[in-house]
Write a protein that binds this DNA or RNA. Structure first.
Lengths: 223, 223
DNA sequence: CGGTAAACGGACGATCCCTTCCACTTAGCC
DNA sequence: GGCTAAGTGGAAGGGATCGTCCGTTTACCG
């Protein structure tokens, strides 16, 4: 990355932010994001950039100037949904019944996975150098750990449940939800039903294989 | 496909079969299959043909003459494992305890998924016009249905279990097993532990979301 | 041992995708 | 209204993979 001309008004920020854009550019930026969300939801994050540009009715160059890298577009496109996830977690933490909160958040995130083919990929993929994601993820993991602890203390979640089992559930659900149609949504619901049932503390739970050391990053990489 | 010369000894079979090959060609064919299995296990079925050829120590043309299409190579490479699956199912059917048989076959196939990155893809992907697969699949589904019925009658498998839930489990497991390392094998084992527990007939099982109309084909397509 | 056809390998054209470049257009300010 | 810089679209460069072609090599048979 070459040095900027010596005295631009914004020396350290290559991205002036969406508000500083010219009106038409801001409009196009929104169109691109909308198109990207639609395309990702329908076809996963593997859709060519050119397809997104075409769907947005702009040229490829326009897209690239606004989102210099592929990942920056993906990141931006899914920020909304990530926020929604974080909100779901916050709501769950406010529920007086921690088990109900736990179920709700798991159901919600899994339903989002099933509804949007690209979501999990964006959710699980580690974007190098992307600090916004990292912060959210850390916060989410903290909140999740708290929720799990409370649900266990309430005697509703089985004691040998591990926080990483949430990731396990998300990955499993992702495997089911990848198919496009409405039946994959149904399949996802049924899987979550099974899983939540086995997560619940019960009388006759036998020993379980040990939890894998799953992290929210490190996963969803190459598959 | 143009007509053959009028009177070849094998008029209807474009593939003379591995035995009729020249010695060096047969040797190379085996090398290619071995290389393909290794590569698929390590990196999934997305590895370039050229990489497999290189690994096998042959040129690309050699590979293409033996396996005219990408899928023909994949099909051939995974036949062995499919046979193993069928064998596992047969064994399970001979087990006097249908529940134990059921658990064993689920664990086995899921472990194979976790051990071999390409396996599920080859297992679930529908290859148009591939009759060998179709026959095996039909047989497998029959056997599975029988096993499930027996396990239910024995009172070990919950009554609202559906045969398609096996596919559900495989897809879920696939989502977990996609990561390469040993921890994905551990994750797979743990998931299967959870799932089998929730599949087991128990006292306090609440209502479950309805089964999706999952078929062994139609899935694993585009994701 | 020599001939022939099968088999071989590397190079090649086609296709797809990402990314950059450049000449033209247009919004926003004076 | 006109100037300027931001913005735009399409074309072109670069990389990867698929599948084919063709001149060369080699196994097998007589």
């Amino acid at each position: 990355m070459p040095a900027q001309p010596s005295h631009t008004p914004t020396p350290a920020t290559p991205d002036p932010g969406p508000e500083a854009l010219r009106a038409d550019a801001r409009e196009n930026r929104e169109r691109i994001l909308r198109a990207a969300r639609e395309a990702y939801a329908l076809h996963g994050i593997d859709v060519p950039i050119s397809a997104i540009a075409r769907r947005a009715g702009v040229g490829v160059a326009t897209l690239y100037r606004r989102f210099p890298t592929r990942t920056s577009l993906i990141t931006e496109a899914f920020t909304e949904q990530l926020t929604e996830c974080a909100g779901a977690l916050d709501e769950a933490l406010e529920d007086p019944d921690p088990w109900r909160g736990f179920c709700t958040v798991v159901r919600k995130v899994c339903a989002m996975q099933a509804a949007d083919r690209g979501f999990t990929h964006a959710f699980l993929a580690r974007f190098p150098g992307d600090t916004a994601y990292a912060g959210e993820l850390d916060r989410a993991e903290e909140g999740l750990a708290l929720l799990v602890r409370r649900a266990k203390e309430a005697g509703a979640l089985r004691p040998d449940f591990d926080v990483s089992d949430v990731v396990l559930a998300l990955l499993a659900n992702n495997g089911v939800a990848k198919g496009a149609g409405p039946e994959s949504a149904a399949a996802s619901r049924r899987l979550v039903g099974y899983l939540l049932e086995s997560f619940r503390a019960g009388p006759a739970t036998g020993p379980l294989p040990p939890p894998a050391e799953l992290e929210l990053d490190r996963l969803g990489g190459t598959g």
